[in-house]
């Protein structure tokens, strides 16, 4: 885990240096385009984090092993932090590019909805005292909450939005063709990989904490008996 910590820290530093020292300025947006290297990897990490919640919630409901719920809970918290940063970095990018921090278009609204669902997820967990019941209810909400992600991702294709369609996952005549210059594309891919490594580090750190906290509560309950 210490190893992962240093790999992700150095990776993030390396990407930062690459982005700010080597990259040319994008033609139409200018300097604020650099925010893309935070925003897009954070989006993908949010998707992955809540996908992990989805998978481990199903696993918990199926096998009823507490460890699955601990992983789901850890991933949901990390995902929520990334989701908040997606909304913030997006808003900060929107001001110089669109001329506004926020609009109620389909992409932005469904992303805010995802954030609110997982805020509710933690409120639900806090409101239940029984650990098994907490896990059961949270798993159901975690599965439902994840279903918003395909909607978010497809919102720019299904509906008319201010937010532009996907650059990275653009498909033209059945072939993947990201509409971005190679000079800007490679650092984006690197940032995504580094941020996913960083996510795994955060997930493990948070999972350790969760395991220890549950063990502590167990011990406290035993001593009270």
């Amino acid at each position: 885990m210490l190893y992962l910590e240093w790999v992700s820290f150095l990776g993030l530093l390396g990407c930062g240096l690459w982005i700010f020292l080597k990259l040319p300025i994008e033609a139409s947006q200018g300097f604020p385009q650099k925010i893309m290297y935070l925003h897009v990897p954070s989006v993908i990490t949010t998707y992955l984090a809540f996908f992990v919640v989805f998978i481990f919630s199903i696993a918990y409901l199926w096998k009823r092993e507490l460890v699955f719920d601990q992983i789901a809970k850890a991933s949901a918290e990390v995902g929520l932090v990334f989701c908040a940063l997606v909304l913030l970095t997006g808003a900060i990018w929107g001001k110089p590019t669109w001329g506004t921090y926020w609009v109620w278009d389909a992409r932005l609204t469904t992303t805010l909805l995802l954030f609110l669902i997982f805020m509710g997820y933690f409120l639900l967990r806090m409101s239940v005292n029984d650990r098994d019941k907490e896990a059961r209810l949270a798993s159901v909400l975690g599965i439902i909450g994840f279903l918003d992600i395909p909607i978010i991702h497809k919102s720019v294709e299904w509906w008319r939005t201010l937010h532009q369609p996907s650059t990275l996952f653009k498909v033209e005549s059945g072939q993947a063709s990201p509409s971005i210059s190679p000079e800007l594309y490679y650092p984006l891919v690197a940032s995504i990989i580094v941020m996913l490594v960083f996510y795994i580090y955060l997930l493990l750190l948070r999972y350790q904490t969760e395991k220890r906290t549950d063990r502590l509560n167990q011990l406290l309950a035993d001593t009270q008996d």
Binding site: E26, A27, T97, G99, T100, T167, S179
Partner: peptide, 15 residues
């Protein structure tokens, strides 16, 4: 009363 720029999904360095 409001004018928003709709950015395209294209990112390029050629001015």
């Amino acid at each position: 009363h409001q004018l928003l720029v709709k950015h395209s999904e294209e990112y390029t360095v050629e001015t």
